[in-house]
Amino acid sequence: MRDVAIVSYSQTPYVRSERVRNEVEMLMPVIDAVVEQSGIARREIGFTCSGSTDYLAGQSFSFVMAVDAVGAWPPIKESHVEMDGAWALYEAWVKIQCGEVDSALAFSFGRSSMGETAETLALQTDPYTVAPLCPDTISMAALQARVGLDKGLFSERDMAEVAARCRRAAKDNPEAQLKGDFDVDKLLAEPYLVSPLRKHDCPPISDGAAAIVIAAGDLAKQVSKKPVWIRGIDHRLDSHQLGSRDLSLSPSTELAGKKAGVAQGPIDFAELHAPFSHQELILRRALGLADDVLVNPSGGPLAANPIMSAGLARIGEASRRIAAGKGQRAVAHATSGPCLQQNLVCVLEG
C-alpha cells in the first residue's frame, strides 16, 4: 500500500438552513479553501470524487451541478458515490493506491433543510415491506436505543451525558451549529420525543458541505508541513433487516475497525459519526475504545449533522486536530443507513 495523507480540510459553518445560496454557491468557497490550503494547484489534483444524494436535493442527477464548483475545465478525472463523502474519500484513496494519480479531492454536500429528513430517510428501507410503514429515522433509532437499554449496556443518563458533553465540546468549534452547557438532570427531566429518545438524544437538522485533499507519500511531505497519514481505512455492511440484527451491537464497525488496525496502537481521540447519543456508546464498544478516550471533541453529529457530509467531516475534523498537535493517533468513523447499517473506519496518525 502507498502512504497517503490528508493535506487539507475545509467545511462550511453548519447551519439549520442555507436559504440564500444554492449548492454550487455553498460549495465554491469550501473547495477553493481546501485546494488553496493543500498547496497543490487545482489543475494538478489527479482525481475528484463527490458524495451526495438526490433525495436530499429533491431532484435527479443533483450531483451533476456540483461539477460547476470544481473547475472541471479542461475535463477532469471525476466520480461520484451516492453515499456519504467518507466513501468518496475511500474511492479517492483507492485511485491513489492504483498508482494512477498522486492526489485527489473528495467532497460532499447536502441540505437537509429542503425536505423532511426523518421521513425522507425512511425511503432507504425495503420498499415492499418496510417503507410503506414509513418508519422515520428517529423511530428506528429509538428501537435501537431500547435494545441497548434493556440489555443494560447503557442508561438514559449515559445517553444524556453524551449529548451534554458533545454540545459542550462544540463551544470550541466555531463551525458547529448546536452548542452550549446543558445540565444532565434537566435534560433527563424533559419529556420523551420518541421513547426512549429525548430531543437532546437526536441530531440537529443541518445544511453544509465538506472537502478533503489527500496526497501520496512524497507529494504529501512536499506540500504539507503537517500531513495526517491515513494508516488504515475499511468499511463494512450489516444486514438491512432490523429484525435480523442485534441492534445493540455494530459488527460491521467492529470488523472495519479490525481491518483498519484501530487496536495496533494507542488512540488519543475519536470522531464518531453517531447521530444519536446511544449510537456513540454502541460504536465505542465496537471499536474497543478505552473509557478515557476522548470522543467527538468537535461536537460531532449531535452538534451538527449535515447528512452526506457528516461522515467526511469526522475524518476532516480528526485530521485538523492532529495537524494542530492535539493528538497523535485518532480513529474517525462514518455511518450510513438505518441504525448504523454501514460503517467506515479510518485510522489517522500525525
Binding site: 450531483f63 466520480s79 461520484h80 458515490v81 451516492e82 453515499m83 466513501w87 475511500y90 474511492e91 432507504q124 428501507t125 425495503d126 420498499p127 418496510v130 475499511d234 468499511h235 463494512r236 455492511l237 450489516d238 444486514s239 438491512h240 433487516q241 459488527p251 460491521s252 470488523l255 450510513s336 443507513g337 438505518p338 447499517q341 454501514q342
Partner: peptide, 18 residues
C-alpha cells in the same frame, strides 16, 4: 442498503457509484 443480503454484501465492503 436494502440489497445488502441479495448481493451477499453483509460483512463485506460495498460501494455505490452514481
Amino acid at each position: 442498503l436494502f440489497l445488502a443480503e441479495a448481493l451477499g454484501g453483509v460483512g463485506k465492503p460495498m460501494l455505490r457509484v452514481h
